Computed example of a mutant assay.
Amino acid sequence: MSIGKRIIELRENKNWSQRELARRVNLNVSVMNRIESEDRPIKDHELDKLATVLDVTTDYLLGRDSNHGEEYDSLYEINQLLKKYNIDQSGFFDIEKWKSMGPEEIKQLESYFQFIVSEAEKKNKQQD
């Protein structure tokens, strides 16, 4: 993913307009537009300021690191998966939709839960 697309994605995840991000990093909105559309190279001091304001590393913005910050952000990654597979979060947690699941779907769900618990237990044992 390009730097412009990363900036747009991060900005949209914060529900900021391009104007709002430009204000936060002290840039003219037209400059911010050109950075996001990659019509203008980003200067080092702008990169640093964007990384700070967007709560990521400069390496992430430059595509050198797939993590957004110093630590892995599992909630962010889960939200990205929900977006990628077009799963509406409110629908995902809507109990009424779960009530319509049949026996085979419940078995699949149980398998998934077992997998998650098993992986968590493995990780906990490795950390001990």
Rank of each mutant, 00 (worst) to 15 (best):
N15H: 12
N28Y: 11
N33I: 08
L50Q: 01
K14L: 15
G102S: 07
S30P: 01
V53W: 04
L62G: 02
I35H: 00
E36G: 01
N15K: 14
D94P: 09
S100V: 10
I42A: 00
S17Y: 08
L61F: 11
I87L: 13
K97I: 03
L21K: 01
R23C: 06
F93W: 12
Q18C: 08
D44Y: 03
S74F: 15
F92D: 10
S30L: 11
W16K: 08
I35F: 05
D94C: 13
N67M: 13
E46S: 04
N28R: 14
S66C: 07
Q108R: 10
L81E: 13
E96C: 07
Q108K: 14
I106C: 04
F113R: 06
G102F: 04
R11K: 09
Q89F: 08
S111T: 06
E71V: 09
D94W: 09
D73I: 06
L75S: 06
Q89N: 02
G69F: 11
H45W: 07
S37D: 02
G91C: 04
S90R: 12
R34F: 02
I35P: 00
I35V: 14
V56L: 03
S37N: 10
R40K: 09
D39Y: 06
E36V: 07
T52N: 15
S111R: 07
G91W: 02
D44K: 10
F113T: 04
A51S: 07
N79C: 08
S74E: 15
N79K: 10
A51H: 02
N15L: 10
